[in-house]
């Protein structure tokens, strides 16, 4: 039944010193649709691909079905994008909000972002060491601001967290990562608009052949002063999530891919294929 003797629960080391259950949890993150994060000297942004719940809701009821939530606001200075089990993400983001409020209440200061990320990483570590639990099945990209400017972190179910210049998680995120590795050195001096264009280009790499980014399947999270396309941005450039028509101007800045099919292929896409839906607990 199991793939090997050492992967049935999380309290067992393999002879090589590996933790297979933790590695499988990392696979759960890859089941979720992709998210991309990057930062400049002035801004940090998140971009995510929202999956349609086609697996559960027939497309004929399209108007009633919703795209899933990929981003959460934690505090004015922190936002996250997720890939993996949404319900696990809700538990963790709730905890992060509590930490943020606690810091405001006790010290009247915004919680330091690195500590917030470490706090959830420490929670995740416990779930890799004790029997009767499973590791979290969700990965985060966390953007935040502290005294030295915008930051970007990755959190993963293994209990590790790292700070990056740019990063991507979720389904086919390796393609986005390749894009980011090619361009990250220029991000520091980008304007917000340029940064988002880079982010969209990276996110586009995670799409399947016949898909395109549009106002319905893309979310953009921004931290920092307002873009030329934004009105009524919260004071101090607080975290906000853009969805729907508001992202149209950004999508227009994308440069068509040279090799990819920019215009939809003549033959209609097979309707049966399962999109990279985020995994549901029941599914």
């Amino acid at each position: 039944m199991f793939r090997n003797t050492y992967d049935s629960d999380n309290t067992v080391f393999s002879p090589q010193g590996r933790l297979h259950q933790v590695e499988y949890a990392l696979e759960a993150v890859k089941q979720g649709s992709a998210a991309v994060g990057l930062r400049s000297k002035t801004h940090a942004v998140l971009l995510a691909l929202k999956a349609w719940f086609a697996r559960f809701i027939p497309r004929s009821t399209g108007e009633l079905a919703s795209y899933q939530q990929k981003m959460f606001r934690i505090d004015d200075h922190v936002g996250i994008a997720i890939a993996g089990l949404t319900s696990d993400a809700r538990v963790l983001s709730n905890f992060m909000r509590q930490q943020a409020m606690g810091s405001k209440m006790v010290f009247n200061r915004p919680v330091p972002v690195n500590r917030l990320v470490s706090a959830i990483a420490d929670k995740a570590q416990v779930k890799t060491q004790e029997y009767g639990r499973r590791p979290y099945g969700v990965g985060f990209l966390v953007i935040g601001t502290d005294q030295s400017g915008p930051r970007l972190y990755e959190f993963s179910p293994s209990g590790n967290s790292y700070e990056y210049f740019a990063m991507s998680i979720g389904a086919r995120s390796q393609s986005a990562k390749t894009y980011l590795e090619k361009h990250y050195e220029s991000f520091a001096d980008c304007t917000l608009e340029q940064l988002i264009t880079h982010g969209l280009h990276a996110l586009r790499e995670t799409l399947q052949q016949d898909k395109e980014l549009n106002v319905n399947n893309t979310s953009i999270g921004i931290l920092g002063p307002a873009s030329v396309h934004e009105q009524s941005v919260p004071k101090g450039g607080a975290f906000r999530i853009l969805e729907g028509d508001t992202i149209e101007p950004y999508l227009k800045t994308m440069v068509p891919k040279e090799d990819g099919p920019v215009t939809a292929p003549a033959a209609a896409a097979p309707p049966t294929e399962a999109p990279a839906d985020d995994v549901e607990m029941s599914g």
Binding site: M105, F107, N108, R109, P112, R115, D146, Q147, S148
Partner: peptide, 19 residues
């Protein structure tokens, strides 16, 4: 011990003591 450069200043300490 956090060693992350974030420092409690007078305003934060006053808030803490008030609580």
């Amino acid at each position: 011990t956090e060693q992350d450069g974030s420092i409690l200043g007078p305003a934060e300490l006053h808030e803490y003591l008030s609580q």
